[in-house]
Structures are given as C-alpha cells and as structure tokens.
Computed example of a mutant assay.
Amino acid sequence: MTADNHHTRVGRRAFLSNGSLVLATAALSAKQVVADEGRSALQIGLVTDLHYADKPAAGSRHYRQTPDKLAEAAEHFGKHDPSFIVELGDLIDAADSVQTELGYLKRINKDFAAIHKHRHYVLGNHCVQTLTKQEFLDGVEQQRSYYSFDSGAFHFVVLDACFRSDGEPYGRNNFQWTDPNLPAAEVEWLESDLKATDKKTVVFAHQRLDVTNQHGVKNSAQVRQVLEASGNVLAVFQGHSHKNDLKDIGGIHYCTLVAMVEGSGADQNGYSLLSLDADGTIEVKGSRKQSDYRWTI
C-alpha cells in the first residue's frame, strides 16, 4: 500500500450499522459501496484465551468447559473451510508442575490440531507460566514464537510479547504478567519484515498493543510506530483482556476478541471468522459473545 493510501486510512470515520461498528471513508464512490458478490475473500478462524485446565472453575473462568466450546467453534469453522486458524494466546491455564501443564497442553491441542492442518499459535503469558517457550512450541509443533507468512494476497505477522522488561523470556514462573514487552531484536525483526513486503498485512498478538494499562505491552507505542511506518498494516487482532474492544490508532484497527473460557454454558462461548477481501475490506463475523465488525477502505 502506498503512503497516500495510508493517509486515506487515517481519515476514516466510525459509525454504527445494525449494532456493529463500521469504519469507512467519508466519501465513497458508488462503485466502492456496491459489494462484489463474485469476489472471494480469504477466511481465517480465530479463537483466544481458551485457558484449558482440568481444574474447578475459578470466578467466571470455567476451565473444563473449554473442550466443548472449542468443539462448537470447530464445527462452525468446518462449514466455512477457512484457509487457516489462529489461537491468540493462553491456550492453557497455569499448573503447579511442568508435567501437569504439559498434560493440559496435550489434551486441548489434540482437539485444536484436529480442526485444521494449517494453524498458528500466539504465545500467551499462561502458555509459558510453568513451561518454557520451547516446551510449549514443541508441544504444538511450531518452530518459532514470532514469525511471518503469506497467504493469498496478504502478509501475516505473529508476535511474541512474552518477554520481561530486561529482555528475558517468560518461563518457569519467572515473570509478572503485567510486564510484557517486545525485545529490541524482535522490534528490529518486525521493522525489517514489514519493509520486505508490499502486501496488505494483518498482525496477531496476545497482549494488547493499543492500551497502556496492565493488559498492554510496555513498549506498545514503539511497536505501533513500526506498524504505522510500514503503511501496509490493516489490523491487529489480540486477546488477553477477555473482552470485546476496538480502537483505531494511526489508521490501524486494534481488535480485541472475547475469551472462550469466560462464563458457563454454550451461550457464553466466543469465536470468530475473519474475512479479508483483496481490496482490504475486513469483516469479523463473531459467534456467541463475539462482536461483529466490518471495515472498508
């Protein structure tokens, strides 16, 4: 995307349509408004904050209900045949021993891996509470904790903010969950990666890049500057704070998705199908507690 197009993104405004937040340019041509029924979009299944654990509920978190909730999401994704699926962190909850936590991971990943052969895992703080990053990655058969890939007309980036302020990676209960950071090496990699592509880009993260409270990445302002400078980043999808939220900062949509673990019963589930059109139009079709969004350039 050119710099001029990036400036156009910054000028979008928000309005409500059928209860959903829509972002659009102030002036759209008739050609842009009319949907192209024949256009095929890239579809992606999204879930976050499953927190699976074989332990009693604590507060609003019902850990043992996650497999049933995930099964519903799997059925839904199966009907739409997404190109790949992404879990945005905290696939498991913490355990008091490495072996127990590995057991949680093996149990829930068996179900998650069966949904789709193409899948991506974002590291959440609970994923590496007792485990090391390597143990988690080995358990889900993923080589790296942050990386990028292309699919269709789009570029995708998976980030890892599970690092302390001093640059040490999370693991073995060596961190405070309120101290997430992207270390200098990852920020440098991100900048280089974005410069190397001219494709429209979507970013996946766990800890939030749009807030400065306890749920936010400590150096989020620095990371946002890198994302904005590329001129190609359309949106960031993230979890961690367990609730629907949406912010538009510097022309980039920061969409926070609801946690699957929150609440008891099928109606308390939350998952979504993300559709990306070649023209940059983004649609989030949420299920259960997950909100719907549509963003049009």
Rank of each mutant, 00 (worst) to 15 (best):
A74D: 04
W177L: 01
Q268A: 00
G167V: 03
L273T: 07
G286W: 06
V258Q: 04
Q268V: 00
V284C: 01
Y104M: 07
H62P: 07
D248H: 07
L28I: 13
G89L: 04
Q99L: 10
K31P: 14
H126M: 08
I115Q: 05
E262T: 02
L274D: 05
V211F: 08
Q134S: 15
V122W: 04
T256S: 02
Y271Q: 00
G265K: 01
F204G: 06
F136L: 09
L182N: 03
L209I: 07
R172C: 02
S287A: 06
S151C: 06
T212Y: 10
R64V: 09
D245A: 02
V10I: 14
H7I: 12
T281M: 03
A53G: 11
L190T: 05
L190P: 11
V223Q: 01
V86P: 08
D96M: 11
F15P: 10
F136P: 03
V122D: 08
F154W: 05
R224M: 04
F112P: 09
K69H: 02
G45V: 05
L246K: 02
N174D: 06
A114N: 11
D166Q: 03
P180Q: 02
L21V: 15
R107N: 15
A94D: 13
A259F: 02
H118M: 04
H253I: 00
G89D: 06
L91H: 06
H118S: 09
D245M: 00
A235I: 06
F149Y: 14
K133N: 12
V98H: 13
D279P: 13
L91D: 07
I92T: 03
N213K: 07
A229D: 14
F154S: 01
V157Y: 04
A94C: 08
D36R: 14
K117W: 13
V34D: 13
G231E: 08
Q32L: 13
E87C: 05
L274V: 08
K285W: 11
V211K: 04
D54T: 12
V86Y: 08
N5Y: 15
D4K: 14
Q142E: 11
Q225R: 07
H155L: 00
A259P: 10
L227E: 08
H7V: 11
G38P: 14
Y146A: 08
K133G: 14
Q99M: 12
A235T: 06
S291C: 04
Q43H: 15
V226D: 08
L91G: 10
Y147G: 06
V226S: 07
D36Y: 15
Q43C: 13
N5E: 15
L28A: 15
K106Q: 14
S165K: 03
V10D: 09
R144M: 10
L88Y: 06
E188S: 05
T212G: 10
A30N: 15
A113Q: 13
A71I: 02
S17E: 12
D166P: 10
V187H: 04
G78S: 01
G124Y: 09
T100I: 13
V187K: 04
T100R: 10
N125H: 12
S241W: 07
S20Q: 10
E75P: 03
G265A: 01
H240F: 02
G59R: 03
M260P: 12
F77W: 12
P82R: 00
Y254G: 00
R13F: 14
H242S: 01
K69A: 02
A235G: 07
